[in-house]
Every structure is written in C-alpha cells, then in structure tokens.
Simulated scan of single mutants.
Amino acid sequence: MSEERQRLSGHSGWIRGCAFSPDGTLLATAGRDQTIRLWHMATGRCHCALRLPSDLRGLCWYPGAGLLWATGGAGVYMLTYVH
C-alpha cells in the first residue's frame, strides 16, 4: 500500500521530466509550461523557477559539478546550480 507524502504544485502544464540532485536534497521538474522548478525535498517548497524558450522534455543532473541538463523542443540547455 502506498500513501501520498507530499504534493508539489506550481507547474501550469504537464510535467515531462524530473531528476533528483546527486545529494538527494533537490528535485528538478521540467514542464510543458516552459519552466524548470527546483524543489527542496525536506520542505516540498519550490526553491526557484526558470523559464526557457521551449517546452521541456527531460532533465539530468551531472554529479559533482552543480550542472543540470535539460532537453526541449529548441535544443539542449546546460544550467549551473549553486547552493
């Protein structure tokens, strides 16, 4: 049996991808609303939102470098994250 522990609300469209940071403290979500949102897993709150020029389809963290890669209809984006 499963139970909902948190609900992360903020995107205005479908979520197309998600990825946990290497240390597990953040979750990045990519949506058709052209935003990437970073969520604190301990609180469930959105840390920041970034709008990109196309709908997004996937995410991948690069361990140890603070880099988040996103794919979208307009290309591949490399984003730097600093705590």
Score class of each variant (00 low, 15 high):
residue 1 M to C: 12
residue 1 M to F: 08
residue 5 R to A: 15
residue 7 R to S: 11
residue 8 L to I: 07
residue 8 L to P: 04
residue 9 S to L: 13
residue 12 S to L: 14
residue 12 S to H: 13
residue 13 G to A: 15
residue 14 W to T: 14
residue 14 W to C: 14
residue 15 I to F: 03
residue 15 I to W: 05
residue 15 I to H: 04
residue 16 R to M: 12
residue 17 G to K: 03
residue 17 G to H: 03
residue 18 C to Q: 08
residue 22 P to Q: 05
residue 23 D to K: 09
residue 23 D to I: 06
residue 23 D to Y: 09
residue 25 T to F: 07
residue 27 L to M: 08
residue 28 A to Q: 00
residue 30 A to C: 13
residue 31 G to E: 04
residue 31 G to F: 02
residue 32 R to E: 15
residue 33 D to G: 11
residue 34 Q to L: 07
residue 36 I to E: 01
residue 38 L to F: 07
residue 39 W to H: 01
residue 39 W to G: 00
residue 42 A to L: 09
residue 42 A to M: 09
residue 43 T to F: 09
residue 43 T to Y: 11
residue 44 G to V: 08
residue 44 G to E: 13
residue 45 R to F: 13
residue 46 C to E: 12
residue 47 H to G: 06
residue 49 A to R: 09
residue 49 A to T: 06
residue 50 L to G: 09
residue 50 L to Q: 13
residue 53 P to T: 02
residue 55 D to M: 14
residue 55 D to E: 14
residue 56 L to F: 01
residue 59 L to P: 01
residue 64 G to K: 11
residue 65 A to G: 04
residue 66 G to R: 00
residue 66 G to C: 06
residue 67 L to C: 05
residue 67 L to H: 07
residue 67 L to T: 09
residue 68 L to G: 03
residue 70 A to N: 04
residue 72 G to H: 10
residue 73 G to K: 08
residue 75 G to I: 05
residue 75 G to S: 07
residue 77 Y to E: 00
residue 78 M to G: 01
residue 80 T to R: 15
residue 80 T to P: 10
residue 80 T to G: 13
residue 81 Y to K: 08
residue 82 V to D: 13
residue 83 H to T: 11
